[in-house]
Computed example of a mutant assay.
Amino acid sequence: MGQLQQALLVVGALIIAAVVALNLWQSWQLRRRRARPETSSPPIKPSSGSELHAIEHGQREPELDDRPERVEPELAPVEPGRTRAPAPHIDPLIDAIVSFLFELPVPGEALQQRLPRSSRAGTKPMLFEGRNAQSGLWEALQPGARYVELQAAVQLASRSGPLNAIEYSEFVTKCHALGEALGAAPDLPDMAEALEQARDLDNFAAANDAQLSINLQAQGVAWSVDYLRQQAQAAGFTTTLSAGRLALVDVMPASAGPGETDIAEPGRPVSMVQLQFDAQAALADNPEMPVSRATLLLDVPQVPQALRPFARMREAAQRLGQALDAKQVDDNGAPLSHTSLDQIEQQLQRLYAALDARSLPAGTATTQRLFS
């Protein structure tokens, strides 16, 4: 190992040590501030009864009526599994979660105004949910509602890679600042455990990601853009996503498969397969601009298995190939036979099974976030 490599290793170790030290110091500072009387601007004051307190300049909103204040009934403690709304956003399967527990319910609009300006930590998105004081369910913060607990989360992994130490430190810094504004100490997850979970999740996602394509190559004369669009619409591609991109859209069936209860409401449109071709040709003023290649693309983790997206893609490719006099080829131009497509479908079933075993069925909101 050269001297330069040794020096880089030392510098990296020092940076990680500094991040850990910074997180510990911020936690100590927040506990110290909460232990002594505040002399600066006060943190947000939870509301009770019919009064809502303004969060700036110590002003108070006008009373809604002259009725006496009422005390919000206490809620039962949250169980470890968390009471979840039907369509949750934050999910411990793919998020590192920080909790803020309030002594009294806090208005949703007050919490919204205290959230960080940027809802990202590096490349990773951050999400916020409150536990509704009336329903006890976790939900996105809503004006007019009141919350007894807040959760902030940062996504552990995505297609850009796992959460790293710098991103986690940025997330913790924002949570400390939010805790100061709310007057509630954040309950932080262990950094080493969070980063280990992020690496494990990223390894799983990398091993079970799949974006399948079938290319249609003109065998004779190229097609015009208008003719390609007409044939694509006849094959079911009715939704225009952007220049050179159409989508085959279907709706969720009334009954979803096991573990698919949060995919979408029955009847909700789902984009299954995309048809892509030359965007410059699509934007050209000449509708007769020739196009000789088009690609059908399926992003497997993004689409519910119940919709049979790969079978639908094969059917659309067959129909389009006949209408356009095109052959089906892979990305290298090699012909795609029925046998090779059957083998891909068998491998696809194993991928679906792996996602299900991890409680991440294809097409669920959580899975879509992970594979994005």
Rank of each mutant, 00 (worst) to 15 (best):
350 R>H: 02
343 Q>D: 15
348 L>P: 07
343 Q>L: 15
349 Q>E: 11
367 T>F: 05
339 T>I: 14
339 T>V: 15
341 L>Q: 12
357 A>N: 13
340 S>F: 09
338 H>I: 10
352 Y>P: 04
354 A>E: 01
333 G>E: 03
341 L>N: 12
350 R>V: 00
341 L>R: 11
337 S>K: 04
363 G>I: 07
367 T>W: 05
343 Q>S: 14
345 E>N: 13
349 Q>I: 07
343 Q>G: 13
334 A>Q: 14
362 A>Q: 00
354 A>K: 02
339 T>D: 15
340 S>R: 15
353 A>F: 06
366 T>Y: 06
344 I>D: 10
364 T>F: 05
336 L>P: 11
347 Q>H: 10
333 G>N: 02
335 P>E: 06
337 S>N: 05
365 A>F: 00
339 T>W: 11
351 L>A: 05
351 L>H: 06
359 S>H: 12
345 E>T: 06
333 G>Q: 03
339 T>Y: 12
337 S>F: 01
354 A>Y: 00
366 T>L: 06
349 Q>C: 01
356 D>W: 03
348 L>K: 08
363 G>A: 07
356 D>G: 02
343 Q>W: 13
359 S>Q: 12
350 R>I: 00
366 T>C: 12
363 G>M: 05
344 I>H: 11
365 A>L: 08
354 A>P: 01
354 A>W: 00
333 G>A: 02
347 Q>R: 11
343 Q>R: 15
367 T>D: 06
363 G>W: 04
358 R>S: 02
362 A>Y: 00
366 T>A: 13
336 L>T: 11
334 A>K: 13
364 T>G: 05
363 G>E: 10
340 S>H: 12
358 R>A: 10
336 L>Y: 11
352 Y>V: 03
343 Q>Y: 14
344 I>W: 09
340 S>V: 12
344 I>M: 13
348 L>R: 10
333 G>V: 04
346 Q>C: 10
346 Q>A: 14
346 Q>K: 15
344 I>A: 12
338 H>Y: 09
341 L>V: 12
365 A>H: 07
351 L>Y: 05
336 L>M: 13
361 P>S: 06
364 T>V: 05
365 A>D: 03
350 R>L: 05
335 P>Q: 04
342 D>G: 01
363 G>S: 10
338 H>T: 14
342 D>C: 00
344 I>P: 03
367 T>P: 10
336 L>K: 05
355 L>C: 01
360 L>P: 03
365 A>G: 08
